[in-house]
Design a protein around this nucleic acid. Structure first.
Length: 446
RNA sequence: GCGGCUAUAGUUCAGGGGUUAGAACGCGGGUCUGUGGCACCCGAUGUCGAGGGUUCAAAUCCCUCUAGCCGCCCCA
């Protein structure tokens, strides 16, 4: 017995009508990004493994255990085998393209956005897939282009707040029981601040780590920053006594962070400074942030994350090119919007209806099939959305089908074709009338 | 990667060793020849996730696998 082939674990098919929501989200994102003068970049799904090892960090979970990596065999004696990886994130690829195309030599600030699939081999869960989609943007350029300015950080964050507003995701407030988005903000310091802080953290952890939970003991060794956002109740007291990153920022970093916050205040973007917010990728410096939302995502409540990566270009062998960017988990954004729509429907008691086409053309017998298709062609060319039935259907069945997908039914029998006049019935009003083919588009549009 | 829960019709779910597996919605048809939605009637839903085992007998109990979900880990 033949087994059917199924989508592999952690991947999924997106079908109508859900894809309409994906399209709306992407359209809104493109419109908002365009208003902020971002242009689209599309980088390959496949990159050299080395890009992520150097950019994201050899020791991160993403690189050390979650990448889809394989050796691409040599096809000719002149070729060398190469280790390839399905991109687990898109920032490294964008910076690679920035370096490769010498975009820095233009002297201009580059504002780029992307929308596309990313791949990580994690255990799938709601809001966490092995192929998932990110909508992201990067602002990068030589320091003389203003890429390092706190203004850029604030602009990115204000743009994100605008995007979420326009998508209809509310801001968390007491009024909505904090069921909305929240911006968590922190500065993890410059590329010199951070190592000093990590060293201090390691030292402070040494005498106390034996009293912490096993997870934190492990983190204290491998990635001390992660101890900070531990959820373990018993360890909170110890964590509160650990050195604070704010005390290890140099003057420039402190001033930078202060300026970011002042600009956010001026733009009325609400945020919470969370000194424990750390990011899992090695390239982050200074401003880091995360938007969370308590809606439909369960434990995977991080909707998007990002931050500054002033040293990434150099890590990848490029020129100095400070930058800042973010990635939105599009799958999680969709889940949030669906949860929102569901609770709105529950509150109003209304059943959400799927969008309908303008008209359904019902030929009464196969003799009218060709005329029906020709009429559909004319109406479609005038911009109307049309579904066409089949002459083998009984009229009752046509009505049933039409009511499901269309706002009006256009009945086409022998008389109608002969007189070039259709019988039109509008479902919402129940009105029925005879309309000349030449006036049909106008009638259906009203 | 670790721990747990779950898998039955297109969908949501009931059935928890006994011979022919159910409901609702949805679907097809009829009452109803070119006027639907309501109503009534009829019908099909299906290898009970896959494979193996126990048993006279397995959807039901056991094992393995696969997948989804929940919690960790991590992250978007």
């Amino acid at each position: 017995m033949a087994q059917i082939v199924k989508a592999i674990r952690g991947t999924r098919d997106l079908l109508p009508p859900e894809t309409a929501l994906w399209n709306r989200v992407e359209r809104t994102a493109r419109e908002v990004f365009a208003r902020y003068n971002f242009g689209e970049i599309r980088t390959p799904v496949l990159e050299a493994t080395e890009l992520f090892a150097r950019g994201v960090g050899e020791e991160t979970d993403i690189v050390s255990k979650e990448m889809y990596t394989w050796e691409d065999r040599a096809r000719a004696a002149s070729e060398k085998p190469q280790s390839l990886t399905l991109r687990p994130e898109n920032t490294a690829g964008v910076v690679r393209a920035y370096i490769e195309h010498k975009l820095g030599d233009t002297g201009q600030l580059q504002k780029l956005y992307y929308i596309g699939p990313q791949f990580r081999r994690e255990r799938p869960q709601k809001g966490r897939y092995r192929q998932f989609f990110q909508i992201g943007a990067e602002v990068i350029g030589p320091a003389t282009s203003g890429s390092e300015s706190p203004l850029r950080d604030a602009e990115i964050l204000e743009m994100l707040a605008t995007l979420l507003d326009e998508l209809g995701i509310p801001r968390a407030s007491a009024a909505n029981e904090y069921k909305g988005w929240r911006l968590h903000l922190n500065s993890v310091g410059s590329s010199t601040d951070r190592p000093r802080y990590v060293a201090a953290l390691r030292e402070a952890l040494l005498p106390v780590k034996d009293r912490m939970c096993p997870d934190n003991q492990r983190r204290a060794e491998t990635n001390p920053l992660r101890v900070l956002d531990s959820k373990d109740e018993a360890d909170q007291e110890i964590i509160n006594g650990l050195p604070k990153i704010a005390d290890y920022l140099d003057e420039a970093s402190t001033a930078h962070f202060t300026a970011v916050r002042a600009a956010l205040d001026a733009c009325e973007v609400p945020y919470t400074v969370n000194p424990r917010l750390v990011r899992g990728l090695d390239y982050y410096t200074r401003t880091t942030f995360e938007f969370t939302v308590d809606l439909g995502l369960g434990t995977q409540n991080a909707l998007l994350g990002g931050g500054r990566y002033d040293g990434l270009s150099e890590m990848l062998g490029g020129p100095k090119a400070p930058g800042i960017g973010f990635a939105i988990g599009e799958d999680r954004l969709i889940l949030t919007l669906q949860a929102l729509a569901e609770s709105a429907a529950a509150a109003s008691g209304e059943v959400p209806t799927e969008p309908k086409v303008d008209a359904y053309i019902a030929p009464l017998s196969p003799a009218q099939d060709a005329a029906a298709l020709a009429l559909a062609r004319t109406l479609r060319s005038k911009g109307l959305s049309i579904e066409v039935g089949d002459g083998t259907f009984r009229l009752k069945k046509s009505f049933d089908a039409a009511d499901r997908v269309a706002r009006s039914i256009v009945i086409l029998g022998e008389d109608e074709v002969a007189s070039q006049t259709a019988t039109v019935k509008t479902f919402s009003t129940g009105d029925q009338s005879k309309v000349a083919f030449s006036d049909l588009a106008t009638t259906l549009r009203s």
